[in-house]
């Protein structure tokens, strides 16, 4: 079991020794059971920290903000930022290291093991509770969750309410960390590509009508992009203007900016945006599932990323995020990469 006291102790140590600039963990929202990312700047604030099955957020994403802040400031504080990471999150740190977006000493990592559980899926929890409102959702013992409802404790087997991505997770233990909490317990992930198999089996037209329905309700709020630990481009093809504009940029350059995607939320543009995102995440997505969780109209974005993950594995034997020294998927090749589709 991950001990919260130990987590607080470690954070306190890191903050009071001045080893880290600030620490990002999780705290409860109000008095409820849901959590949000918490920025801990003072050692005495560590008591805000929690570790519960509702800690979905991939905090690695906040390293982009830190990097941009450093670029803006004249004399930036270059001490590392502390982070709590789960297995999946730790793999996204590896990808950022692999792409040299950050350096190892930019981040101080406290890894937590998901052991036999992981994070929950709220829809599944609500279905399980059948209308009851949870007051607290906690880790139970031996692969269960403990849900407190009406001051009564309900024990739920982890697989019943685990998020899909956790059911298919290949690494429930941090692969890179300075401090690790919890035990390394091997868990059989089952079929890692379970969630996409039904869609792969569909006939072409069926698949199209499925995706057409999904994409047509996209609002282009870009929450999927904003929450993604891998979406750190300063300028995204989906933006109608260039952020990289400076005082030196000429009017001509501004006018010549290629507009790949128009701003209208019609199907063609929505598809374009999501295709670009999917292909850009191929070999980079660690399946932290955040894009899908935050989508207000629940577009099943994991299905896209998972497909790319599967193809990378099957075609090129590529696993994402286990080795920071490995080259990025599309920046390397093997002589015998499959080419039966090429005429």
């Amino acid at each position: 079991m991950v001990s919260l006291d130990q987590l607080k102790e470690e954070v306190k140590k890191a903050l009071s020794s001045g080893k880290v600039k600030y620490f990002i963990g999780y705290e409860n929202i109000g008095s409820g059971w849901q959590v949000r990312p918490a920025f801990i700047r003072q050692p005495e604030d560590v008591d805000r920290l929690v570790w519960t099955p509702a800690c979905f957020h991939n905090l690695v994403r906040f390293l982009h903000d830190e990097k941009r802040r450093r670029a803006r400031e004249k004399n930036p504080d270059i001490r590392p930022v502390g982070l709590v990471v789960k297995g999946c999150d730790s793999r996204s740190i590896n990808v950022l290291l692999q792409e040299k977006y950050i350096e190892r000493n930019d981040v101080y990592i406290i890894g937590v093991s998901c052991e036999l559980t992981g994070v929950i899926n709220i829809t599944k929890l609500n279905q399980h509770l059948n209308g009851l409102k949870p007051q607290k959702v906690l880790f139970g013992s031996k692969g269960t969750f403990k849900v407190i409802v009406d001051d009564r404790e309900i024990e739920i087997e982890a697989p019943d309410i685990l998020a899909d991505r956790c059911l298919e997770c290949p690494a429930n233990f941090p692969v890179i960390a300075d401090v690790i909490l919890g035990e390394e317990i091997k868990r059989n992930p089952g079929n890692r590509y379970q969630s996409i198999s039904a869609y792969e089996k569909m006939a072409l037209d069926e698949r199209w009508s499925f995706w057409q329905q999904q994409f047509s309700r996209c609002l282009r709020c870009y929450a999927c992009r904003s929450v993604c630990p891998m979406c750190y481009c300063d300028e995204c093809v989906a933006d109608s203007i260039a952020y990289a504009v400076t005082a030196e940029t000429t009017a001509d350059e501004k006018a010549q900016k290629t507009r790949w995607v128009e701003r209208n939320p019609e199907l063609s543009e929505n598809i374009f945006y999501h295709l670009v995102r999917a292909i850009h995440l191929a070999g980079r997505c660690v399946d932290c599932g955040e894009c899908e969780r935050v989508c207000p109209v629940e577009i099943p974005l994991r299905l896209l990323n998972k497909k790319m993950e599967k193809e990378a594995k099957e075609l090129f034997g590529y696993e994402v995020g286990f080795d920071p020294a490995q080259p990025p998927l599309i920046a390397c090749f093997r002589d015998n990469d499959p080419q039966d589709f090429i005429r």
């Binding site: 990312p37 918490a38 609002l219 709020c221 870009y222 929450a223 992009r225 904003s226 935050v294 207000p296």
Partner: peptide
């Protein structure tokens, strides 16, 4: 705003 993601959910909806 330290954890704001700069997405459009709060305003679009």
């Amino acid at each position: 705003s330290s954890n704001c993601l700069r997405c459009g959910i709060c305003t679009y909806l």
